[in-house]
Design a protein around this nucleic acid. Sequence first.
DNA 1: ATCATTTGCCTAAAACCTTTAGGCTGTTCC
DNA 2: GGAACAGCCTAAAGGTTTTAGGCAAATGAT
Lengths: 196, 196
Amino acid sequence: MARAGLTTERLVRTAAELADEVGFEQVTVSALARRVGVKVASLYSHLKNSQDLRTRLALLALEELADRAADALAGRAGKDALTALANVYRDYAREHPGRYTAARLPLDPETAAASAGVRQARMTRALLRGYDLAEPDQTHAVRLLGSVFHGYVSLEAAGGFSHSAPGSEESWARILDALDSLLRTWPAPGPGHPHP
Amino acid sequence: MARAGLTTERLVRTAAELADEVGFEQVTVSALARRVGVKVASLYSHLKNSQDLRTRLALLALEELADRAADALAGRAGKDALTALANVYRDYAREHPGRYTAARLPLDPETAAASAGVRQARMTRALLRGYDLAEPDQTHAVRLLGSVFHGYVSLEAAGGFSHSAPGSEESWARILDALDSLLRTWPAPGPGHPHP
DNA sequence: ATCATTTGCCTAAAACCTTTAGGCTGTTCC
DNA sequence: GGAACAGCCTAAAGGTTTTAGGCAAATGAT
């Protein structure tokens, strides 16, 4: 009987392609087995179970995102860096929707701590060195940026901004303008402007 | 044979409880049938299929969110309104994680257009009347707020901000401060500050 | 080169979810 | 009461997950 020469890594990469083509939800051990031309049970030599496959896929996506982020940030600072990092997420989500969804999979704390997610957080923090933020504001800003990037990209992928003017492209640019401005003039805590 | 007296609405409400208890992903026609004490096939008189159940659950959650938003916004303006609306999303996600996940389900355009999602968008826009934003900046700001609320709540639910200082509560407060400040001084488009 | 071991893929089978088809029995309404 | 409908049931087919056990190809020692 001819052997297919499967490995866990190869399977996960194939699963990533599958995810981008048919959606992360549709990535199933069965579908993966079909695609690599092998019986379903054979995959259980390489994968613990279905959840294991999804987790590995998530870790792959987190790595790829972190790699792209590192590339994008190299040699940039300030708004340039902000824009570059933001576009890493948006572009990745558009090029690889299934992988991007996978990257959003909730991981248990230990797995998350060992993932490339921490690399991404570190890079976001590095980006903020181009602005003048002391702790704990820097952490708040890291969380804000993460929220905006993830939130915008998710809503856009769900079709939230299509079919209405102005275009999503323009909003994205203006939101980055706004974030840049906000980071340069991060406000002190408080109830906001005092009513005169 | 005693009749259970099921209706589609009752099933969807039960599915919502189920979602909050075991997670949206685990909401299945079978699990729902078990919970209401009926054979699986019986549910297909009330639900078109599994996807139909999930969609109805999403619509329920969107309605509940819009209702809470309307309550929260009544009689408030400015930062008060901003905080109230933001907390609607965060509190709802914490009280009803399954429902909140359901509300994030991508809907086909017609369904989305007929959902309470548009009511939510309208209310966010109404909130912004307390700030001085002309179109198209108002739309950009609506999208920014939606992104931050959804993004923050999602990352928080995924455990992104736990086990690290400062606490998520504090970041949330400071991010709302920052958004309020940003909305009061929304910047003009451009590359940012000119370098001196 | 041969034999033993390990490895990789297979078949078989059980458990669960989805969906359709058809039947029986309460309920409703003349 | 009886006709018609509605609501829940059984049956069955098809798909996914996972475990168990088998056979053959690759590996490596003698």
